[in-house]
Nucleic acid binder design. Structure first.
Length: 726
RNA sequence: GCUGCUGUAGCUCAGUCGGUAGAGUGCGUCCUUGGUAAGGACGAGGUCGUGGGUUCAAGUCCCACCAGCAGCUCCA
């Protein structure tokens, strides 16, 4: 058999050779470092005979060594097996579910009565260490479906049996891996032997469900990670620590940026003065930019009639994640429930009589209710009653309000594009388990705008909005991002509008992104229900990715709301809508910025830009003069009034992350200046007040970013990615 | 929403076997008036998340609820 190596050279090997044999022929060290092999596009076991894997001649082979990023995924998957083996030794009778790799490690789901806690980790890790020390090989073997089922039954692995019968129903032959006494249904690939694991650690334990469905059996998920080198693992653990140090919930509290109060409610952010300052600066910044780009500011109320959202589609499509409607009539909620019971057919005659009596008791005039009529007619009657009542929804999105603004006057093609912008606060009843500081809240303000354009303006306007997003991200120092073209899932029925409209919208979007020169990937099933989106995925200072800004193309709402404009041909035409929010939501964006900057905002965004530190109490008057001059120049400056020495005041200002300190004593006063201290550089010595102001203005007005504390951690990506197999 | 863990001073946390609550920091007052990361003394601050229960006695044990955290699921 012939093997072609990545450098193009072709060599001959005896039949039955494995990648490991090839490696050995090159050198013993290479063989030692070889973890897996890549044949064509597929990662496979290093010890499998290569002819089993492909018909190609010569066989294209790349050895995967501990240096290759793909190797980590293989290692971690094997480590998941090692962990499962250890758990089975300690907890006999444990059921195995799935054990895939994740971005930074792996997990295995166990079906086990005894709860595992972090206190069990040392025991499990010690057992894993034994397995690693023994260094037994991972052996692959194949069985037919029937044999596989029999084996899983013999091993008393119910979940594996179920998976063989359902999830893997279309596989005729299934692979298993044996490692000592441990046998697991597994697609592989695996490292040659357990001795390759040089560093591993259990990270956490959490609940999960069989196949991710909360209707299914609850499982215990054990997370861990593994590396070829202890140093790499330490770097990873440091990174996790760094992320914890930057947690915006902790920093937000520590620096008084925002608060969330039980008394106000879950997921409802309170912007404290300092956090509000940051938000205000961002809002002012973007407002100016919008003015320059021809947007018109608008305001709309926080509630709207339910019918509005029925027309837009928000109400029926996302009812569960909205706050319950506000009913003007006491019987409103009752009738609403009644309706839904008729709709899902769970209503009995007696219930209906009870509902009617209760509604009448609450003062609803339903005397003409057609008890004997069809479900449709009874629904129609109740719907009619509801429409005569007040029913409001806390707005889940701003678009319907802006649509009404568009409709508030007749539009000519000469008026278009119409660009309506608003920092619009919307409310979404996120599941309680989803709430997360400022990153996931129930009341959020989008830096929203809707553009109403003619079809032939779409290209240009969309390009301009992409440009706007790029500009604002650059201004806050976020320059590492990619764009995701989020398309509909063709299998799903949760979208509104015809497939033709969707195809055209997705095609247009793709065209614009192609021309924009932006780095973009396509992703099915991520679209909004009314249209495809271009989502900006932004990488922060320590390598985490966040979905922030979004630009969405929408042919559907104009259709639903029958939007029109008069064209040059004096006929009516339908405009196209572009939804866009460069920041996404102010809450999420500021939350992310807190973590990105580790709360040390650049000068232009810092809530407190300068702190004036008097050397002694006699300096108070001069401190006030300096403060007045700073305020006059538009700076946010405070005076430290503590009766403490300057060392203490400096320490406090450093810990409060104030970008600049002005230390003033008699010498500075006599020379009409300050001793400037840079939070990062330290003492800059004496400057006249004018030159200090000039320096600070330059940094502020240039929106200079110089305070991002970058972590030296390089994100590890090595997961097999595909968790669908087995 | 589900599973597990947690809830003590403004903040970070200690509190043993059930016996009327403690530190550091911050805050206040006073002393100190200093030149680039912590000067000193004194003082105020708590219905121990909420509501029940067990007990002579509950921060501590039990139950329910609320909230937070991790994960799952979800995210217009």
């Amino acid at each position: 058999m012939n093997i072609q190596l990545p450098d193009g050279s072709v060599k001959e090997f005896p039949a039955g050779s494995s990648a490991l044999d090839v490696a050995r022929s090159i050198g013993e060290r290479l063989a030692n470092a070889t973890v897996a092999a890549q044949v064509g596009e597929t990662i496979v076991d290093a010890m499998r005979p290569l002819e089993e894997l492909t018909d190609a001649d010569p066989i294209p082979l790349k050895l995967i060594t501990t240096k290759d990023p793909e190797a980590l995924g293989v290692l971690r998957h094997s480590c998941a097996h090692i962990m499962a083996r250890a758990v089975m030794r300690i907890f006999p009778g444990v059921g195995l579910a799935f054990g895939p790799t994740t971005g930074n490690g792996y997990y295995y789901d166990f079906d086990l009565e005894t709860p595992i806690s972090e206190e069990d980790f040392p025991r499990i890790e010690a057992e894993m260490q034994e397995i690693v020390k023994a260094g037994e090989p991972f052996e692959r073997f194949h069985l037919s479906r029937a044999e596989a089922l029999k084996l899983a039954q013999d091993l008393d692995q119910e979940l594996k049996c179920e998976h063989i019968e359902t999830g893997l129903a279309d596989h005729d032959e299934l692979s298993f891996y044996r490692q000592g006494e441990f046998v697991d249904l597994c697609r592989g690939p695996h490292i040659p032997d357990a001795g390759k694991v040089k560093a591993f650690k259990l990270l956490s334990v959490a609940g999960s469900y069989w196949k991710g469905d909360s209707a299914n059996k609850g499982l215990q998920r054990l997370y861990g990670t593994a590396f070829f080198d202890k140093k790499d693992m330490q770097a990873y653990l440091d990174q996790v620590e760094e992320a914890k140090r930057r947690d915006h919930r902790v920093l937000g509290k520590q620096h008084n940026l925002f608060a969330i109060s039980n008394d106000v409610g879950q997921g409802l952010a309170l912007w404290l003065p300092k956090g509000a300052t940051v938000r205000n600066l961002l809002e002012d910044f973007i407002k100016q930019e919008l003015l320059r780009r021809g947007y018109n500011p608008v305001y709309s109320p926080h509630v709207g009639r339910v019918e509005l959202y029925e027309t837009s589609g928000h109400f029926p499509y996302y009812r569960e994640s909205q706050f319950a409607p506000l009913f003007g009539h006491p019987a409103g909620a009752l009738v609403d429930h009644w309706k839904s019971r008729i709709e899902d057919g769970s209503i009995k005659e007696q219930h209906e009589a009870d509902f009617l009596a209760a509604a009448v008791d609450l003062g609803a005039d339903l005397s003409a209710y057609p008890k004997a009529a069809s479900a449709e007619d009874r629904m129609a009657f109740l719907r009619k009653w509801e429409r005569q009542q007040e029913r409001y929804l806390l707005k889940p999105m701003n678009c319907p309000h802006h649509v009404q603004m568009y409709k508030a006057q007749p539009r000519s093609y000469r008026d278009l594009p119409v660009r309506l912008a608003e920092f619009g606060t919307v409310y979404r009843h996120e599941q309680s388990g989803e709430l997360n500081g400022m990153l996931r809240v129930r009341g959020l303000t989008q830096d929203d705008a809707h553009l109403f354009v003619t079809p032939d303006q779409v290209q240009h306007e969309f390009t301009d909005t992409l440009d706007l997003v790029k500009f604002v991200l650059k201004s806050v120092g976020l320059e590492d991002y990619r764009v995701q073209l989020s398309k509909r899932d063709p299998q799903s029925d949760k979208y509104v509008g015809s497939p033709e409209l969707w195809d055209s919208a997705e095609g247009t979007l793709r065209g614009v992104l192609d021309q924009s020169g932006l780095n973009f990937t396509e992703c099915e099933g991520e679209a909004a229900f009314y249209g495809p989106k271009a989502d900006f995925m932004v990488r922060d200072a320590i390598g985490r990715e966040w979905q922030l800004g979004t630009v969405q193309l929408d042919y559907n709402l104009p259709e639903r709301f029958k939007l029109e404009y008069v064209g040059a041909d004096n006929a009516t035409h339908r405009p196209v809508m572009i939804h866009r929010a460069p920041f996404g939501s102010m809450e999420r964006f500021v939350g992310m910025l807190i973590e990105h900057f580790a709360a040390a905002f650049p000068l232009w965004l810092a809530p407190e830009q300068v702190r004036i530190l008097g050397l002694n109490d006699d300096m108070f008057g001069y401190c006030q003069q300096i403060q007045a001059a700073l305020q006059q120049a538009g700076f946010r400056a405070t005076i430290d009034h503590q009766s403490a020495n300057v060392k203490k005041k400096i320490r406090d200002a450093q810990l409060d992350l104030v970008p600049y300190m002005m230390v003033v004593g008699p010498k500075d006063r006599d020379q009409g200046g300050v001793s400037l201290r840079d939070r990062l550089e330290g003492d800059l010595g004496f400057l006249t007040l004018d030159s200090a102001l000039t320096k600070l203005k330059e940094e502020r007005d240039g929106r200079v970013i110089r305070q991002v504390v970058k972590s030296n951690f390089q994100g590890f990506q090595g997961g097999s990615g595909d968790e669908e197999g087995y």
